[in-house]
Write a protein that binds this DNA or RNA. Structure first.
Lengths: 253, 253
DNA sequence: GATCGAAGAAGTGCATGCAAGTGTAATGCT
DNA sequence: AGCATTACACTTGCATGCACTTCTTCGATC
């Protein structure tokens, strides 16, 4: 699926940056800056952006700079619904079919999550997401894997937009419970645990329709005429940090 | 999602060609032939192929001509499993939320399917697929729509590889039943009907693991040493015609 | 006659160049 | 000063060109 061509390298880098929230929704991704950063031409950077756009991670607007996608609240909710069904399929497919070494790998991964509890939140989010992706990969079903991966990455974008501070503690024990049920071959219980886990994640993140950032302007619109506080954080962040993982020389020539 | 840029035009054309089985699994899609045909440069054709590859409709191999994807039997089965869950979400989301004009549109579409019964099989397949896509679009959920569309198009590829002659008669009445249940707002029944319908489609198409074409060579491999009948239809078709959507008549010849 | 190998053809991988569109800062006008 | 306008720099859209890889065909060899 992903080849070793240079566009895929850029894709992976950006995906990871998104996963670790080094890139946030709305961040700009200019083709030439990207190409420069990765030592390739705009052609390749452009190709990578097209790929990412088709995964829903990047928003492409004609004649305009590409942006990291900003999922709406409704999209985020709907995608968790999809994700629940997809990952139910994953654990069902896996039940009783996991080798000892695979179970070992998953257990080790969760141990890694445990170890990262003190560390950065970005790292915890990355590990948690990778757990789900790893599970999907073990099914050996390419399309299912692709969809779970895409939607899991999109989720991290949603969480960045709407999520409150991540608390991965419960998630870890839920991961363990899923592994245990899958290893025991109890498909129904595993599917139920996974669905519940994802519901919990969604609930912890943004169950109540709290429109943080992004939609703020719409919500404030009725009041906006009274005062003009400066359009809020959104615009500020966008211009402030323009692109890549690492620095990009101050705008202005 | 799809813009009016020229790459998207090529994408749409190829998607439609695949849907109508004017393009079959394994057909070659050379960049420059494609570009020539559509009056654009290789750059654009290449971009379109990348897009289609990310949708699973095209297979890209480094330094080699792109091919229309050839889903394996396992992939086809797995994708129908995914599709069932996805489309269950669709009808659930739609239940009781359909406007009169939308119901009218769906009913008209099914009438169109009815009218096409005497016509070409390709046309019936296209209409049946478009019914599902139309349903998904009505949810207004972009990600769900995208996945259903992708996987529905992939299904048509699977059907081309493994399906026996399509018999759309029962499918039409099943479509009607789904519309009726959705219009009535009976979510459980609608979901069940949709799931059953898709199971039926899969069953009619290839429930028994019949490896037609494509895998034929593998199956025949043990016997191949005895005789050399010329590698079958596959190689012949591939070299015979190199690319294009329109004007692809004879399957023999 | 069949097999192996090399040269040409066909095709992709990628960078670069130019035209057109977009945002922004400077300029002129009221 | 405030607003509209214009000019310019930035960015994308796309075609073309060149290098490299793969395929094919044809000739040499056994």
């Amino acid at each position: 699926m992903d080849f070793s061509d240079r566009a895929s390298i850029i894709c992976r880098a950006i995906r990871r940056a998104i996963l670790e929230q080094a890139l946030s929704p709305g961040d700009k991704l200019p083709e030439d800056t990207l190409g420069e950063r990765f030592g390739v031409s705009r052609t390749i950077a452009r190709h990578a952006l097209g790929q990412l756009a088709s995964e829903g991670l990047v928003e492409l607007r004609r004649n305009r700079i590409a942006l990291v996608a900003t999922p709406s609240f409704e999209e985020a909710r709907d995608e968790f619904d999809i994700r629940r069904e997809l990952e139910r399929l994953v654990v069902r497919a896996l039940c009783g079919r996991l080798s000892a070494s695979q179970i070992e790998e998953l257990t080790a991964h969760v141990a890694g999550e445990e170890a990262a509890r003190g560390g950065s939140e970005a790292n915890s989010i990355r590990l948690a997401t990778e757990f789900h992706v790893k599970l999907a990969e073990m099914t050996g079903k390419p399309t299912l894997t692709r969809y779970v991966r895409e939607i899991a990455y999109r989720s991290s974008l949603s969480l960045a937009t709407f999520g409150r501070p991540h608390s991965p503690d419960c998630a870890i024990s839920e991961h363990r419970a899923v592994i245990e049920a899958v290893a025991a071959g109890d498909a129904e219980r595993a599917a139920a645990l996974m669905a519940e886990h994802l519901d919990q994640v969604a609930a912890r993140a943004f169950l109540k329709a709290r429109p943080s950032r992004g939609d703020l302007m719409e919500v404030l619109a009725p009041y906006a005429d009274a005062e003009r506080p400066g359009l809020g954080a959104r615009a500020g962040r966008e211009t402030e940090k323009t692109a890549q993982p690492q620095s990009r020389r101050p705008k202005h020539a």
